[in-house]
Every structure is written in C-alpha cells, then in structure tokens.
Simulated assay, not measured.
Amino acid sequence: MDNYNWKKIFYWAAFVVFGILSKGTVLILGSFCILAYATYLYFVKKQKKQNWFILSGSAFIVGLILLIQWASSLPPVEHTQSTTKPASKPQVSFTFETTSITTKENEVIIKGSVEPKDATVKIKDGSKVTELKMIKAGQFEYKADTSYPLTYRFEFVGSKKGFEDAKETVLVERQKTAAELKKEEDDFKNSCKTVKYGEIEKSPDKYVGQKVKFKGKILEIQEVSGVGIMRIAVTYMGYDIWNFNDAVWVNYTGTTDAVKDDIVTVYGTMLLPKSYTSQAGWEITIPQMDAKYIEKK
C-alpha cells in the first residue's frame, strides 16, 4: 500500500476519532465539508462520485446520533433561586404605659416613648391625623377626648428615614358614670307608657317594639346563668288581690332580689306574645316583654 493510501487511512481515522471525542460535532461539520466537495466534483469536475454524497450523509447521521446521546446523558439543569435576602431595615418601636385603658373621665392622657428618639410620631384619631410634639427626647403624650361613653381606637405610627414604620393601637373604653347611668335609667323609664292589659291582649302586634311599664305581682320567677324570666299578674282587683289570668311574660338579664308574690314594676320593650304549656297541659299565650329595669315595691 503506497504512502497516499496510508495518509488517506490516517486522515479518515483521525476524522472518526475526533468526531467521537467531539460528541459528534466534528462529524456533523465534516459532513458539510464532504458534501461541498462532492458537489464540486459533480457539477464542476463532472465526476459522478456518488460515494462522496453517501459518505457525507453517513457522517452527518452518525454525528447527529452521537450528539443526541451525549445531550440526553447530561443531568437536568436545576434552576435555583438566589437565597440572598436584601438587608432588612431596622424597626421603629413603641413603648406605652398601657394599650388598653378603662375610664369614666371625659379626657385621658396616653403616654408613650419611641425608638429611635428622633422618630416622627403621628396619631390617627378617627379621620384626623396629627403629628405629636415630643415632651422630651423620644417621649410623647396625647390628650384624648372621651366625652361620650364608647370604645375609642387610637392608632399611632412611628416613622424615620431608613427605618421600618411602627404601628400600635391603643383602645380606650369610656364607661358610663353613675350620673350618666341614672340619667339613662330615668330617661328610659319616663319614655315607658302604661297600657291596659286588655288593649295589648286585643292587638299585640300594635305594641311590638314600644316601651311600656307594668306593675304587678310575681306569679312565677326563675333565674339561670344570669338570665331570668317571670310571669306577673298586672290587673289589681283590690284587697291585695291580683287577677292571675291577666299575666305578662317578662324576660330580663341579670338578677333581682324580688321573689314570688312580691310586687314589682317592670320597664321594657314589648315583644310578640309568648306561648307555653301550663302544668295542666293547656296551651297558653300571653303578652311578652324584655325588661330593662325592675323595681321592687
């Protein structure tokens, strides 16, 4: 075999080896070179050597197979998210003497402090937002108007550039004073009207929701877990006799020191009639009310 054949064998062997080592890439690229050379021989040199076309296609197919096998053997790519968290800002903080206040006064003073001491503090009172002035470094107080008996909600916001805002809520429960309770009771009692039993019995729907008062003798009374009921006879017949047929069903909350056979006056709101079964098995329907106040004679 002459030197030319040895060189040809060497070149082809090198082409195949590098083709395998390159995972088929050299074979694919080489196939295009062979195809170009075969096209040159066919059209320019007029040499119809079909084996060059076959060689080009074979190199391309083998290279493509090697490349696919190599790609399929690669481990899947894991997409990991960066675990680096942005540095968090320091937090403004509040300290209050208390965040829940119970009072009967018309004004309370809410005292607190803030860190850092040069932070800005704003108070939201309803729809009104006010920036507070510090009484000394980092310490503040707010005079809250609590003229009306209800629960007030005051929102404090502390802020400073470069810091996360702080938010704190202070609740103030304004309870009724003894004078306010007495006035409320008097106003309610004065608004209650006296109605004859026969009128309510005749047209119970007419009186639903109305404020009424009854004076009568307790026929039955029970209290369980802070809830009580009583039946009272409300028609006085003279000589310390009350008509037990003219009875009203009374619901109330809390307790009373009144007992059976006591004379009481009840103030409350009329409801729909109450139906119940008597001890004798009779179905009975009588007027019913929710009592707010009960006075013992």
Score class of each variant (00 low, 15 high):
residue 112 G to H: 00
residue 11 Y to M: 15
residue 183 K to M: 01
residue 94 F to D: 01
residue 272 L to H: 07
residue 280 A to L: 08
residue 91 Q to N: 06
residue 272 L to S: 06
residue 248 V to N: 05
residue 91 Q to P: 00
residue 120 T to C: 02
residue 39 T to R: 10
residue 32 F to G: 13
residue 258 A to G: 07
residue 240 D to M: 07
residue 134 M to G: 01
residue 226 G to V: 08
residue 78 E to Q: 11
residue 21 L to M: 12
residue 90 P to A: 08
residue 236 Y to F: 12
residue 121 V to L: 06
residue 91 Q to Y: 02
residue 173 E to M: 07
residue 84 T to H: 07
residue 33 C to Y: 12
residue 195 V to T: 11
residue 245 N to S: 07
residue 292 K to I: 00
residue 52 W to A: 03
residue 160 K to G: 12
residue 209 G to E: 05
residue 6 W to L: 15
residue 93 S to K: 01
residue 54 I to M: 13
residue 241 I to S: 13
residue 125 D to A: 05
residue 263 I to E: 10
residue 92 V to I: 01
residue 75 P to M: 09
residue 157 V to K: 11
residue 210 Q to L: 14
residue 23 K to I: 10
residue 259 V to T: 14
residue 210 Q to K: 15
residue 42 Y to E: 12
residue 65 I to W: 09
residue 179 A to G: 02
residue 214 F to S: 06
residue 201 E to V: 06
residue 231 R to S: 11
residue 16 V to Y: 05
residue 247 A to D: 15
residue 11 Y to Q: 11
residue 76 P to S: 11
residue 117 K to Q: 08
residue 216 G to Q: 07
residue 252 Y to F: 15
residue 155 E to P: 03
residue 156 F to N: 06
residue 40 Y to M: 06
residue 238 G to R: 10
residue 162 G to S: 09
residue 77 V to F: 14
residue 211 K to I: 06
residue 253 T to G: 05
residue 286 I to S: 04
residue 233 A to M: 12
residue 21 L to R: 14
residue 267 Y to S: 02
residue 211 K to S: 12
residue 297 K to A: 15
residue 104 K to F: 04
residue 158 G to A: 00
residue 197 Y to K: 04
residue 210 Q to C: 08
residue 36 A to F: 14
residue 254 G to S: 03
residue 148 Y to N: 10
residue 227 V to Q: 14
residue 197 Y to H: 02
residue 188 F to K: 04
residue 2 D to P: 05
residue 71 A to D: 10
residue 120 T to V: 14
residue 59 A to N: 11
residue 171 L to P: 00
residue 92 V to L: 01
residue 67 L to D: 02
residue 116 P to L: 09
residue 108 V to W: 02
residue 111 K to T: 05
residue 141 E to M: 11
residue 175 Q to S: 04
residue 156 F to Y: 12
residue 89 K to R: 08
residue 179 A to S: 06
residue 194 T to Q: 14
residue 180 E to C: 05
residue 81 Q to N: 10
residue 234 V to G: 03
residue 18 F to S: 04
residue 105 E to H: 10
residue 161 K to W: 01
residue 263 I to V: 13
residue 107 E to Y: 00
residue 251 N to W: 10
residue 78 E to M: 09
residue 185 E to I: 01
residue 233 A to D: 07
residue 65 I to K: 06
residue 47 Q to R: 13
residue 209 G to V: 06
residue 105 E to N: 14
residue 202 K to P: 00
